[in-house]
Amino acid sequence: MNFSVITDNLYFLSTGLWTTVHLTVFTLIGGLLLGTPLALARASGHRVLRLPALLLIETIRGIPVLMLIFWIYFLLPHLVGAVPAYTAGLVALIVFNTAYSAEIVRAGINSIDHGNVEAGRATGLNLVQILRHIVLPQAFANMTPALMSQAVMVYKTTSVVFVIGIVDLFRAATIVNNREFKPIEIFAFVALVYFIPCTIVSRYTRRIEIKRMIRHGTFQKA
């Protein structure tokens, strides 16, 4: 075991980590921005909106993300011309995350008692106002733990973009290993870099959940 291979290649590995980080952040933001309207469509009373949304969400959730990345990588050039691998990878990850975020947002909205909407109407708010000031703020508060678990999942899932040549943390490690042949040291380090932030976020999520349960009086010590 010789971990100097990590310090020797730290600069390149950190550029890979940086790619992983902004892929994760953009994927989370994009997924939430697109997932919220998709969730509203999915929960809509209109069949014209609800059925396509349902079909889209179930299709995306039903196919492997690896396949989705390959497919979008080959599909995008036919629609919009040449795109860098990064764009194709990001679009695929956002599409993937949109479907999952939509289900989280829908569950969040469903968790808000319908009485809130009725109360809003009784005070003379219009529907957009009800959504903005009453439903979504409460829904997002309820969704926080689920969204944070999703963030952890996205952070780990970004590693599959290596298949189209994007140099994220995992791909950077592979490239370094192709030159140094120290797979045990290199991938142990990479596992740690994935593991530590994920664990911290998971623990923090658990604390938020417990606090909320205490507030609602439903907390039982395990």
Binding site: L40, A41, A43, S44, G45, H46, H114, V117, L127, V128
Partner: peptide, 9 residues
């Protein structure tokens, strides 16, 4: 909730 989303559609 349904009419609510119908209008928001």
């Amino acid at each position: 909730m349904n009419t609510f989303f119908k209008k928001y559609a």
